[in-house]
C-alpha cells in the first residue's frame, strides 16, 4: 500500500540550514549535508532543499551543495529556490537532484511548467505555491519568497499547474508557516480534491496530531516541516510510529 510521506525541509541560506517564523527572523539550524543524512537514517521519506535566498538575491542555486547531498543520500530529494530556466533544472538534475520545485518563475510565465514537463517529465517537476489567507480575497498565491501577492486564487493556480504538467504540488500556508498551530486544513483539502497529482502540505506543523489531521482531514499525500525536526522537538521515527497507530499508512 502506498504510504503517506514525511518530508523534512531544509531551507538553506549561504550554505546553512535556517528557519524563520512567517518567512522572517531566520535562525541557524545546522549543516545541510549532516542534517540530510541524519534525516535519511531516521526514516524521512524524502527531503526538500530550498535555497531561500535565491529568488531575492538572484543567486544561482547551490549546485555543489546539491551534489554533496546527493552523494550522501539514498532517499529522493527535491531542490528549489530561484529556478527559472531549463538549464537551471538540467544542472540540478545532472548533479543528483530527483525533482525540482519552481515557484515565482512558474507564476511569471506558466508555460515554463509545460516546457519543463516535456523536457524532463512531469515526475520531476514540483510546483510550489505559497498561499496566504485574507478575509476579502480568501487564499491567494504569493511569490518572491512571500513578498509579492499575485492576486491569484490558490486552488485555481494549483489546478492550472497540474493541467500544465506539474507532477506534484508543494502547498505552503504562509499564514501558518512557523506558527506550530497546525497545517491549514481548509486550503490543503481544497487543493487535494481539486487536482489528481500528489499534494505536499507545508506550514504550521507543531505536533504529531497536526500530521494526523492533515492526512485524515485534508487528504494530503505528504506532510512537510522544518523547525520541529531541526530543533529535535519531534523525532521522525516517533512521529511515524504515532501516525501508524492512528491508522495512517507509514513506512517504518
Amino acid at each position: 500500500m502506498l504510504t503517506k510521506r514525511i518530508i523534512p525541509c531544509l531551507d538553506v541560506k549561504d550554505g546553512r540550514t535556517v528557519k524563520g517564523v512567517r518567512f522572517e527572523g531566520l535562525r541557524d539550524a545546522g549543516d545541510p549535508v549532516a542534517l540530510a543524512s541524519r534525516y535519511a537514517r531516521e526514516g524521512a521519506d524524502e527531503l526538500v532543499f530550498l535555497d531561500i535566498t535565491a529568488t531575492n538575491q538572484k543567486r544561482a542555486t547551490l549546485v555543489a551543495l546539491v551534489r554533496d547531498v546527493a552523494r550522501e543520500l539514498d532517499i529522493p530529494f527535491t531542490v528549489g529556490g530561484g529556478i527559472g530556466t531549463i538549464s537551471d533544472v538540467e544542472a540540478l538534475l545532472m548533479n543528483g537532484a530527483d525533482k525540482v520545485s519552481i515557484n515565482s518563475a512558474a507564476l511569471a510565465r506558466p508555460e515554463l511548467i509545460e516546457e519543463l514537463a516535456a523536457r524532463f517529465g512531469s515526475q520531476c517537476i514540483v510546483v510550489a505555491a505559497d498561499a496566504r489567507f485574507n478575509d476579502a480575497d480568501g487564499w491567494q498565491v504569493y511569490t518572491r519568497a512571500g513578498t509579492n501577492n499575485t492576486g491569484r486564487d490558490a486552488v485555481q493556480w494549483c489546478r492550472e499547474a497540474a493541467d500544465r504538467g506539474a507532477g506534484e504540488i508543494l502547498l505552503t500556508s504562509m499564514s501558518n508557516d512557523g506558527t506550530k498551530d497546525g497545517f491549514a486544513l481548509d486550503i490543503t483539502g481544497a487543493v487535494s480534491r481539486a487536482v489528481t497529482i500528489p499534494v505536499i502540505a507545508s506550514g504550521g506543523a507543531g505536533s504529531k496530531q497536526d500530521f494526523t489531521n492533515v492526512f485524515q482531514q485534508a487528504q494530503a499525500d505528504a506532510g512537510l516541516a522544518a523547525s520541529i525536526f531541526h530543533f529535535g522537538e519531534i523525532g521522525i521515527r516517533e512521529l511515524k510510529e504515532h501516525l501508524r497507530r492512528d491508522g495512517i499508512p507509514m513506512r517504518l
Binding site: T3, D45, E46, Q123, E168, I197, P198, V199, D221
Partner: peptide, 9 residues
C-alpha cells in the same frame, strides 16, 4: 493520484 509517487511495499 497520478503519478503513483512515494513508498509502496
Amino acid at each position: 493520484k497520478v503519478p503513483h509517487m512515494g513508498w509502496n511495499n
